[in-house]
């Protein structure tokens, strides 16, 4: 009986082998089969006995599970290591890498869409750096890093070329709002007042921004809120020193008397109530970057 079964198995094995061979020669075709339609290959081994199959599989399994398990453990501890507070600089480096990629593709001719004026709204969010002890009347914009340190009154700024735009302000929290802004383009302001240059040479407006310092720092009068900008973004034509919002003089909660607005970065970078501006080659401190946010935070 058992001999018979053994013989049967032998015969069966032989038959299956024949069929496999025939299959390989494309003799058996199931036209309904999706594998056939695209000419998909299947990778079947030669027929094996239970014992053989078990032996091969357990050898392969042991190997694969060991490697897979080791990889999983390494991944887990690698992640835990990465997330240690001391290693946050790795994430900051990635922010910096992303910034470089972004700047490589940044074109000042790329413009954010503008919207019909009627769609403009307002939303108050964040009053950091807007201490009570402030008088708009005695306010002067302090600018350092120009050929000479200078002060500007609001009227002096208003006398510069006037630009209006209706753009979408994007908050890093994920919401956005369309606002209408009027002010002077930061690039117009910079062109007018010849900031100091990287190499100290004579200013050449045709060579902006390559010839300028790398960064601009903006700080509130109480120094409670401060942001750093790369020159490329702040000279974008949709970055304004704004003194009007939705056709009215800027309200205190929106950053009166003068604030930065831009289509190039999140709201956290668009400083309200600017007290001082500095052109610098040192990457400026940034309030939210110190809280773990992306220093660049650019669109």
């Amino acid at each position: 009986m058992s001999e018979d079964k053994g013989l049967d198995n032998e015969v069966l094995l032989e038959k299956v082998r024949e069929i496999e061979a025939a299959k390989r020669d494309d003799k058996i075709i199931d036209k309904e089969n999706t594998a056939y339609i695209l000419g998909e290959k299947s990778g079947l081994s030669a027929p094996l006995t239970d014992g053989e199959a078990g032996k091969i599989m357990s050898r392969r399994s042991r190997r694969s599970f060991l490697i897979g398990g080791a990889a999983a453990v390494a991944g887990y501890f690698g992640y835990r290591w990465l997330r240690q507070p001391d290693n946050f600089y790795i994430f900051e480096r990635m922010f910096r890498f992303n910034e470089n990629v972004s700047q490589t593709f940044f074109e000042s001719s790329d413009l954010a869409p503008e919207f019909p004026r009627e769609l403009a709204g307002a939303r108050v969010n964040g009053l950091i750096g807007m201490g009570e002890d402030f008088s708009a009347d005695s306010w002067r914009l302090q600018v350092t890093g120009l050929s000479n340190p200078q002060q500007f009154s609001l009227d002096e700024i208003k006398s510069l070329p006037r630009t209006e735009m209706t753009t979408e302000l994007k908050c890093i929290e994920g919401w956005s709002i369309i606002c209408n802004w009027t002010g002077v383009r930061f690039s117009d302001f910079a062109a007018q007042f010849f900031p100091v240059l990287r190499d100290g040479g004579t200013p050449n407006l045709q060579r902006l921004p390559e010839n300028l310092t790398q960064y601009v720092s903006l700080v509130t009068p109480d120094q409670g809120y401060y942001v750093g900008w790369d020159m490329q973004s702040i000279l974008h034509p949709q970055t304004l020193l704004a003194y009007e919002m939705n056709g009215e003089p800027l309200k205190p909660e929106h950053g009166a008397p003068l604030r930065l607005v831009s289509a190039t970065k999140y709201g956290i970078k668009q400083l309200k109530r600017i007290g001082s501006i500095e052109f610098t080659n040192v990457r400026p401190a940034d309030y939210w970057a110190e809280q773990g946010y992306d220093w660049y935070s650019g669109h």
């Binding site: 038959k15 069929i19 058996i28 079947l44 599989m57 694969s64 897979g68």
Partner: peptide
């Protein structure tokens, strides 16, 4: 994980395959 799956070639299936094979 291993890349391989064990496929049973049971008697019934084999018979069908043998028949089909015979047809060609």
């Amino acid at each position: 994980i291993t890349g391989f799956e064990v496929v049973k070639t049971d008697a019934v299936a084999t018979e069908t395959m043998v028949e089909e094979g015979a047809k060609v």
